[in-house]
Design a protein around this nucleic acid. Structure first.
Lengths: 203, 203, 203, 203
DNA sequence: AATGAATGAGAATTCATTCAT
DNA sequence: AATGAATGAATTCTCATTCAT
């Protein structure tokens, strides 16, 4: 029943999805949906919580806990892209619907996102220590980088799912490739930043 | 009249925005809205087109055409962040509403996004040449990088507008700072990539 | 089970009372309610019949059969007010719900009411004879008086139950006081009528 | 449109009356009903206010202001019975529906009823003075009598409208007759009460 | 004798959209 | 050029009622 809701919310959007359609897709009657999940709002919340938890769990399970920081980040990203590729509707609901439907829902995704950002922040921090980099990077700077990295990952997840490119499922990059692209993009740059190199307008 | 629509769509979302409210905000009668823009769908399309064009134009105008690639990218990003910060409602409509309301609209934003991605792709390509880098990078790889960069930019635009951080307008980073953050994050890494350095799982 | 129904109908009204709530209050499952009483309509009917019968019986039992007419009326009224005060929910269902829910139910209460009106009519008639009053009062007139008296009694029953005055249970008049008020109001007037005195517009 | 609502509420009851039916009876579309009266609750309130005001006004207009108390009461009652007979649906809504649908509505009718009770109380008080009766009657006692009289009048109004008797319209007593019945019932008794006579159980 | 699970039919309410003027 | 007045078509949600067990 939640599956039907995920599918429908992903396809139509929160507002445009009607309880009628959700019930029909689920193959049950509308009152039954209301019996188990008491309102559209609660149904959406339940969907968000389930998908959030599933995504967070997938990432957590993918991470190799005792590996060096870069390796941990890499495995986490692989898990992330694998999960979003396997559950495109769930990802669409989280990333495109929940975030844009105002307070009650946005907050719920934000919590999971914060968890992931924190993990990434920790990885970057750990990497800085491992690298014994020249100076301790400012917390605020690390946080900004983590946000940029997570944003890039979210965008690539959409991209890898064919959003925007319209690529047929067969032609889409694997989770591994997508993760590699992002690691290459981000890690090397982070390394340089750690070394104290900065880009400046002057060229 | 389009201004009123932008405001309302941004505040309420496409579905929740009623033609009544749009007309009221515009200070005209509802039939007048229908006279000029024939339906809610067309009105939304018109809004998307206008905001898309404005954003694309802002970026185009900001780019210093004859500068080196990094400088061009930097100026483009500054333009992008400046525009999204100055027109948060327009940006919200493009990034949060249009993309999430299904086929007809998503396609329209995708076009503008493609234009920007193409520009970024060109910049990366040009940088590769300028740097006289070891080997010509694969088109597919460059495209992936461009997408990651654009995704990071979009995410940072929301971030800089207070989305998710809830920062008061006064405390938000300037367009310049945001662009610098992203350039630092991205450019250094790109540079390394150009030099043929790759991150690989082995560590 | 009927008790639960009485309670719920009194609290919520016929339409607003749900079979769910009735079953819950009764502490049984909904299908069981349907097993014994086949529909909401029949359940309500059963409630009306039971409460009607109880009220009629209470009045009947209270009347002192061989006393003079005024004494019989007085004892009947005491019984009436005592019963309505002791069973406010039953009275509310009869007087406020059943009468206002259209044909099938209104008829059922009307039957019991008719019985009471008839008793009152008989009392007035008997009183006329006892008093050996000047002229035999017209049946129609007596009937009108009986209706007025019963109407006043009903109104006072609500009043004595706190309806309209909002008086706390402790401060409410006893059945005896209420009956006395009504007897004083009515009997004296009836007496005069018996004596052939009439009020006339002329003054 | 309010007329249609009065008709439908009287026929079906507040809960059972559907906005669909009201709109159909009114010969307009449902949204139009919502345009003018924003919800079922407000519609019902509007109906109650209109009917309350009409009834109160009818009574007020009928009273002969400078006549002696009994005559004022008599003319008021005639006005009351005439109005309830001419507007049986309005009366049904006030007396049977509004009073039984809980707080928001019951309060609105109660206000009008209080106004009438006050008028009656004043008349009884005035009559007591005019009659120069032995002792000043207690305010509380007068109030009780007024309530009984108003209750009787309400009951007779239903009765005269065929409620309970099922009398065909042609056979129903005129407003004048009904008022006379009540005056005879009440006034004579009041007179005796004023004279200090009391009924007592002893006989 | 009793119920957990399920639904058909309708309820109030809203909204994009159109005339007649 | 502009609008007040009106509506068809949904949408969310509830409830009396029934099976299968």
């Amino acid at each position: 029943m939640l599956d039907a809701a995920v599918l429908t919310f992903a396809r139509r959007g929160y507002r445009a999805a009607s309880m009628d359609e959700i019930a029909e897709v689920a193959g049950v009657s509308k009152p039954l949906v209301y019996l188990y999940l008491n309102s559209k709002e609660e149904l959406f919340s339940a969907v968000i919580r389930r998908e959030s938890a599933a995504l967070a769990e997938a990432v957590r399970a993918a991470v190799e806990p005792d590996a060096p920081a870069d390796r941990q980040l890499w495995s986490g990203l692989k898990g992330f892209f694998a999960h979003t590729a396997e559950h495109p509707d769930g990802w669409a609901v989280l990333h495109q619907q929940a975030r844009t439907q105002g307070e009650p829902f946005a907050v719920e995704v934000a919590a999971m996102r914060a968890e992931i950002v924190e993990f990434v922040t920790a990885m970057i921090g750990a990497a800085a220590q491992e690298a014994g980099c020249g100076r301790e990077p400012a917390a605020r700077e690390v946080s900004g980088l983590a946000h940029a990295l997570v944003g890039a990952a979210e965008s690539l997840a959409d991209w890898a799912n064919g959003r925007g490119s319209g690529a047929a499922p067969g032609e889409r990059p694997s989770a591994k490739d997508t993760a590699a692209t992002l690691m290459n993009f981000a890690w090397a740059g982070l390394g340089r930043l750690m070394d104290g190199e900065r880009w400046s307008p002057g060229g």
